[in-house]
Design a protein around this nucleic acid. Structure first.
Length: 554
RNA sequence: GCGCCUGUAGCUCAGCUGGAUAGAGCAACGGACUUCUAAUCCGUAGGUCGUAGGUUCGAGUCCUACCAGGCGUGCCA
């Protein structure tokens, strides 16, 4: 919608230049926004102010000149005003809005689609939690944000792939295998000493239990080294299966699950190191191999091969990202928990060293989640305290609520997730507020059908009857949806969608309480049903982006 | 010490990449169900945008310094 306005203003500027009134070098970027107060107009632009300096004229004079050329341009304009200190406020004709409202209903599920992405290949990697235990609430936030970001990017016209990187090698895997093996021995009556740095969770015992059931004491008298590979793999597979199940229930799916181990098996890690060595980005010191990341803005150089000959986690991550580049992704997004933020500069250094445009590599940090119950912090310790896994939270509050809570705040602020508040079906809980609007609309359609109204979205419906101030406000809000999607995609911010829906829907609730939709005035009834259909479509499409259901009854 | 995030109404948070008189929800107070769903709506009250400077026509937004909270600063992942 705003692009249409941009073009109109652009044309007016062009005419002003030809008339010799403005120099326009350089030609300014036209910024169109919505005025704070809807009474001032439907749109406004500040070009006159931004031009003041380069034109060496005062904004008022520039605005006057632009407006002169605006007036005899477009049928869509109803009124043009200049406001101090130089804003140009535009009011659009009714037809301008009504045409677009019709197109919302025609587009249905596609409403909100844009093409800012222009089919650019994007990879977004998220969650990527070690398969050493079930997902916790923090992972849940990352999962929700990553998943929704993906949906938004797709809607905005990107060619998107989502991926989960599985850290299935290295020290953590060894600890996992060892932990399981120890629990196994314990179950079979051996006295074991369980080290502090091993995985102590109950789930390890469950896995050991399964192994006992399947394999009996087969491993009891074998040496540790012979047992560990089996325990490692068994525990990993088991936990990974659980992670996949939890995510699926949370409505999060991935296009690809990428194994770290595969990078070793096909020699990618070694190849990556050699490649960097060839470029002179790698050197040896103290018996280890270092990446010269400090040459690319990192605080210091980083070890990629330890003295022991083992590769670090960072090392395979280098190979992994080289792999992403090789697969042709032009935009690479990594989601990480904020506790990993120390990792950002070195990762950026790697991408720079590999010659990848730094502007198209983004690490998004998702801040912590504090789980509360009625205002009191829920302990997140591994000890069998209160709810701590994602699955637990989901089963308590439901998927819709859980997702909404993770998505309602900007991801770079800490999030308080209060379980009691989340369960309340009151205005304190915005999910229900939005869902209720949808259910209400569906109910009106049911009532209309029951009373014999035959509604349609045909062009014969006279939208000019939508004259109420509230109606025009809602129409404007509905039509803004594609821009919200676009902005979310550009800023990589999911919470904009939640906030938008809340605002749009509150206009509907307010409208609902002031005006009846179904009345004896048949033409007006049809026009209002048309509007409600558009609102309903927008709620559904918005919820589809958030992965939240839109119930027809509540 | 250094780095990252945050600081906006009593509470939880927005603020559209620098625009017009800083906005919602909750909590408080007062109203609205004989109607298409009251899981709703209407009204009142609530502010030194952490502090101090700077940049300009214009700053909650940008730059600098400081204060407070969180996180990080491994040959862990």
């Amino acid at each position: 919608m705003k692009t249409a306005i941009k073009i109109i203003i652009h044309d007016a500027l062009e005419k002003a230049r030809r008339a010799g009134e403005l120099k326009l070098s350089p030609f300014p970027e036209v910024v169109v926004e919505k005025p704070k107060d809807e009474k001032m107009g439907d749109f406004s632009t500040n070009v006159a102010m931004t031009l003041a300096r380069s034109e060496r004229k005062n904004p008022q004079a520039i605005a006057e000149s632009v407006v002169r050329h605006l007036k005899n341009g477009s049928d869509d304009l109803r009124q043009v005003e200049i406001a101090a200190p130089g804003f140009i406020n535009l009011k659009m004709s009714r037809e301008f809005f009504m045409e677009r409202l019709r197109s919302v209903v025609k587009q249905r599920d596609d409403f909100g689609k844009t093409n800012v992405g222009q089919g650019v290949k994007v990879m977004i990697e998220f969650v990527s939690a070690n398969p050493t235990g079930p997902l916790h609430v923090g992972h849940g936030r990352g999962a929700a944000v990553g998943d929704v970001l993906g949906r938004i990017l797709k809607k905005a016209g990107y060619d998107l792939s989502t991926e989960y990187y599985i850290n299935d090698v290295g020290n953590q895997m060894n600890l996992l295998g060892k932990s399981t093996w120890l629990r196994y021995r314990e179950l079979l009556g051996k006295a074991v000493e369980f080290p502090d740095d091993h995985y102590r969770g109950e789930y390890i015992k469950d896995i050991a239990d399964q192994i006992v059931a399947q394999k009996g004491d087969e491993f009891l008298n074998k040496p540790e080294e012979e047992c560990l590979p089996f325990f490692r793999k068994y525990a990993k597979d088991n936990i990974l299966k659980g992670i996949k199940k939890d995510l699926a229930e949370f409505r999060v799916t991935f296009d690809n699950w990428f194994s770290e181990q595969s990078l070793y098996e096909n020699n990618s890690v070694a190849t990556a190191i050699e490649w960097l060595r060839g470029k002179g980005h790698v050197y040896e010191k103290d018996g280890a191999v270092w990446l010269k990341s400090s040459a690319f803005n990192d605080d210091k150089d980083r070890v990629i091969v330890k003295q022991t000959g083992e590769k670090t986690y960072f090392c395979s991550d280098i190979a992994y990202h080289q792999n992403k580049i090789d697969r042709g992704f032009k935009k690479i997004i990594d989601l990480m928990g904020a506790d990993h933020h120390g990792y950002v500069p070195r990762m950026e250094a790697v991408l720079k060293a590999m010659g990848f445009d730094e502007k198209t590599f983004t690490i998004l940090l998702v801040q912590f989640v504090s789980l509360l119950r009625a205002g009191k912090k829920v302990s997140m310790s591994t000890r069998a305290g209160e709810f701590k896994t994602l699955a637990d939270v989901v089963s308590e509050v439901g998927v819709d609520v859980a997702r909404y809570y993770f998505l309602m705040r900007s991801s770079d602020t800490h999030l308080d997730f209060d379980l009691e508040l989340a369960k309340k079906e009151t205005p304190e809980n915005p999910v229900f507020y939005i869902q209720y609007a949808h259910a209400r609309i569906c109910n009106i359609f049911r009532a209309a059908e029951e009373s014999g109204v035959v509604w349609s979205s045909s062009d014969a419906v006279n939208l000019a009857l939508l004259n109420e101030e509230e109606e025009l406000g809602i129409i404007r809000a509905v039509l803004a949806f594609p821009e919200v999607v676009e902005k979310s995609a550009q800023a990589l911010e999911v919470h904009r969608i939640s906030h938008y829906l809340l605002d749009m829907v509150s206009r509907f609730h307010s409208y609902y309480s002031r005006h009846r939709v179904i009345s004896d005035d048949k033409a007006l009834t049809l026009a209002r049903l048309f509007l409600l259909d558009a609102i309903r479509i927008t709620i559904r499409n918005g919820f589809a982006l958030l992965g939240i259901s839109a119930p027809e009854k509540m």
